[in-house]
Computed example of a mutant assay.
Amino acid sequence: MPLYIRREDASYLANALPALVLVSTDPIERLPVFQLDAGRPLPCEGWQILAGLTASVVDGPGDCGIFVEGIAHPKEAEERFAWLEAVNHAGGAVVLVVNSHSAVDDWAALADGEKAWGGFVPAVQRTG
């Protein structure tokens, strides 16, 4: 059964690689511990992201997945469109699941301390 993440527990970061940071104390089945290789997040094999304005879905193997609420107000649209464009340009996003609302700007510390789950998740290719 997919995990449901409220918009208050989701952050959209536009770094060199766009990131979706989710706060949840619930375990995410089959989502790997966050690791880096030469400073870059390892891919999450078997996972893909369908990033959207009103909702995003991070789909994993089998019945695993995460449903993330999207924007609630039109004033949020411009910033989210910029993030969606970054996801499109990068071909995906780094998805991080952490257990608190603390800062996540130090990926090396997250990886060293095994304080996060996730990695790079390729985007679903849209047609039409």
Rank of each mutant, 00 (worst) to 15 (best):
A10W: 02
V124G: 00
L96H: 01
E45P: 00
H101W: 09
P41M: 11
L84E: 03
H101F: 12
W83V: 05
G118I: 05
S11H: 09
D112M: 10
A38I: 00
S102P: 00
G39A: 11
Q125E: 15
Q125M: 13
A72L: 11
P41V: 08
G119H: 06
R30N: 11
Q125T: 14
I66P: 01
W117A: 13
A103M: 12
K75C: 10
V121N: 03
G118N: 07
G119K: 00
R6A: 14
P43N: 04
C44L: 10
A109N: 10
Q125F: 10
S24T: 13
G62T: 03
G91R: 05
L3S: 03
F120Y: 12
D105Y: 05
E85R: 09
A111P: 09
G92V: 06
A93G: 04
L36M: 06
G60M: 02
S24K: 08
P43T: 04
A14M: 05
E85L: 06
A72S: 13
G92W: 02
L84P: 03
L22H: 03
L42R: 15
V58L: 10
I5E: 05
D26S: 13
G70P: 07
W117P: 00
N99R: 15
P32N: 09
G60D: 08
I49C: 09
G65C: 08
I28K: 01
H89T: 14
A108V: 09
P2T: 04
G62K: 06
G39N: 08
P61S: 02
G62W: 01
A82T: 07
L36V: 12
G113V: 09
Q35G: 05
P74L: 11
R80H: 06
G119Y: 03
H101G: 03
V57Y: 09
L110G: 06
L84G: 04
F120S: 05
F120I: 11
A55S: 15
F34T: 03
D26C: 03
E76I: 04
G70F: 02
V21W: 00
I5S: 02
F34D: 04
R30K: 14
A14L: 10
N15D: 15
E114L: 13
V87Q: 04
V87C: 10
V95L: 05
V121Y: 09
E78Q: 10
L17M: 13
E114C: 14
A55C: 06
A77E: 15
V87R: 03
C64T: 13
A103Q: 07
W83D: 00
A103R: 11
H101L: 13
L22K: 03
W117L: 12
Y12G: 00
R30D: 14
S100P: 01
Q35K: 15
V124I: 14
V87D: 02
E114R: 15
D106N: 15
I28M: 08
V23L: 02
V87G: 04
R6M: 12
V57K: 06
L53W: 05
P74G: 06
N88S: 13
I66W: 01
L50W: 02
A55I: 02
F120L: 15
A123L: 05
C44V: 14
I5F: 06
